[in-house]
Deep mutational scan, measured.
Amino acid sequence: SEEEEEEWRRAKERGEEIIILGILWKPNDEEAERRIKEALRRV
């Protein structure tokens, strides 16, 4: 969703871990980033 995407962007800017759509994303975690982008597209 729009607000999840916004939340994720803010976490990326701050360089902090975030759990979004049930996926743990850490800074520079390209695999998780790809999965999150896929999940955001499906929503």
Rank of each mutant, 00 (worst) to 15 (best):
L21H: 11
E3L: 14
E31L: 07
W8Y: 10
E31S: 09
E33R: 04
E17L: 09
R41G: 10
E6H: 05
E5N: 07
E30H: 10
L21S: 04
E16T: 11
A32Q: 04
A11H: 05
I36L: 05
G22K: 00
P27R: 00
E33H: 03
R10A: 11
L40W: 02
D29L: 01
R42H: 10
N28I: 00
E13R: 05
E31Y: 05
L21F: 06
A32N: 02
E7F: 15
K37L: 15
R35P: 00
R34P: 01
K26R: 12
E38Q: 06
G15C: 11
E5P: 04
V43A: 14
E38N: 03
W8G: 05
I18E: 01
S1I: 15
A32R: 03
R34W: 05
E3M: 14
K12W: 12
R14S: 09
I36Q: 00
A11E: 03
L24Y: 06
L40N: 02
I18M: 02
E2T: 15
E6I: 04
N28D: 13
I19E: 12
E16V: 13
K37D: 12
P27I: 01
R14F: 08
R35N: 10
L24P: 04
E2V: 14
E38M: 00
E30Y: 12
W8K: 05
E7Y: 10
I23A: 01
G15W: 08
I19L: 13
E17N: 10
A11G: 03
A32W: 01
A11D: 03
L21C: 14
E16K: 09
R9L: 15
E7M: 12
I23V: 05
W25F: 05
N28K: 04
R14V: 09
R35A: 13
R42N: 12
N28A: 08
R42W: 04
R35L: 13
S1H: 15
I23W: 00
V43N: 10
E5L: 09
E3V: 14
V43Y: 10
E31F: 06
I36T: 02
P27C: 07
R10T: 10
W25G: 04
S1A: 13
A39D: 03
V43H: 14
R10H: 09
E7P: 01
I19H: 05
I20F: 14
E3N: 14
K12Q: 11
R35S: 10
K37M: 09
E7S: 11
R14C: 15
N28V: 01
R9K: 12
E38W: 00
